[in-house]
């Protein structure tokens, strides 16, 4: 009866949600680790864990996308940095370069710390590479230009986080995606999940009583970003309720879905917000609540992207 049809898409599904999640999380983790090392205080463990896990996350993100390409050999066309001159309007071209260079500068920044870490030097292949003349030369250059390399990595990291939103924004037919709030939401979410990841890291894997100040700072930043994300989401709710049929139908899908409401907004944002709020105001007797809140934020970060991809509605006049 209706002359219009309304459909979601089945091309970019859970795997693109993983790509966006790990891309944003990995990039923001690297950026925060390096900024903290440069401007709070030098912190070998934070840089090593942050850089290595960040690079692994970016690797997973890229591998997921690569695995789903139709023509794997043609990916060479987007790995060449000159692609930015040929396709400056294509965000995937920018994103690929941001991710690539983020990984390069991330490893270069971490190299001096790796050389002075016995467990790294003792590794079979890595140890020999670290002692080699080429890596020694890079380490010397890096020590001279530490901040410049840190900022190169950070700029690429911020670029990657913003890119994840710009990519989704560039699809004009879907109101939920094609609006200025998406890059903002995805950037805030990327940094919020990265702070959560670093809180887990510093409480569970590299706990150090001397790092209390850094942990508290990360918790505070995380709390501010969760609050910002809630405000942005409320504005999305308001925006999708009217204005376009595509947006309205997306709102119907999202706000009637228990996974979105209770999984993402409830467990992924509201519960961690109150746990972190108490942590910042009064503190907790144990680390368990803070770590649990961080794990919930990480889960929420994936759910946001998952539901976003599945709820984009195309309105078509046939």
């Amino acid at each position: 009866m209706d002359t219009m049809s309304y459909t979601t898409q089945d091309l970019w599904t859970w795997w693109i949600a993983l790509y966006l999640f790990f891309g944003g999380l990995g990039a923001a983790t690297l950026s925060i680790s390096f900024l903290s090392d440069m401007y709070c205080r030098p912190h070998r463990n934070l840089v090593l864990w942050g850089a290595l896990s960040g690079v692994v996350m970016l690797g997973i993100s890229s591998a997921v996308l690569f695995g789903h390409l139709l023509h794997h050999v043609a990916v060479i066309n987007v790995l060449n940095p000159l692609v930015l001159f040929r396709q400056p309007h294509a965000w995937i071209a920018w994103g690929t370069q941001f991710i690539l260079w983020m990984m390069v500068w991330g490893i270069v920044y971490a190299l001096p710390y790796m050389r002075e870490t016995p467990s790294c030097v003792k590794l079979p292949v890595v140890g020999r590479l670290l002692e080699g003349p080429f890596v020694s030369w890079i380490v010397r250059c890096c020590q001279k230009r530490r901040r410049a390399i840190g900022w190169l990595a950070t700029i690429n990291g911020i670029g990657t986080a913003v890119y994840t939103g710009l990519l989704i924004q560039s699809f004009p037919a879907v109101a939920l995606w094609h609006n200025p709030g998406v890059p903002l939401l995805f950037t805030v979410s990327a940094f919020s999940t990265a702070f959560a990841y670093l809180v887990v890291l510093m409480n569970v894997f590299i706990p150090d009583p001397n790092d209390t100040d850094i942990r508290h700072r990360f918790e505070r930043f995380g709390l501010i970003l969760i609050a910002t994300e809630l405000v942005i989401l409320f504005s999305f709710f308001n925006y999708t309720l009217s204005g376009s049929e595509s947006g309205y139908r997306s709102a119907q899908l999202l706000w009637h879905d228990k996974g979105w409401l209770f999984g993402f907004i409830g467990l992924g944002l509201v519960v961690p917000f109150f746990i972190d709020l108490k942590s910042v105001i009064r503190g907790w007797g144990t680390r368990l609540p803070t770590v649990s809140a961080a794990v919930l934020v990480l889960m929420g970060g994936y759910l946001l992207r998952h539901y976003f991809m599945y709820s984009g509605v195309y309105a078509r006049p046939w």
């Binding site: 091309l11 139709l70 995937i92």
Partner: peptide, 25 residues
């Protein structure tokens, strides 16, 4: 140009007219 296309499907996502489809191996 099929030789240049890597099949990321961004074009299909961007097209409001549902004009694109996959051709696989």
């Amino acid at each position: 140009d099929p030789n240049l296309c890597m099949g990321c499907r961004a074009c299909a996502m961007a097209c409001p007219y549902d004009a694109r489809y996959e051709v696989t191996y």
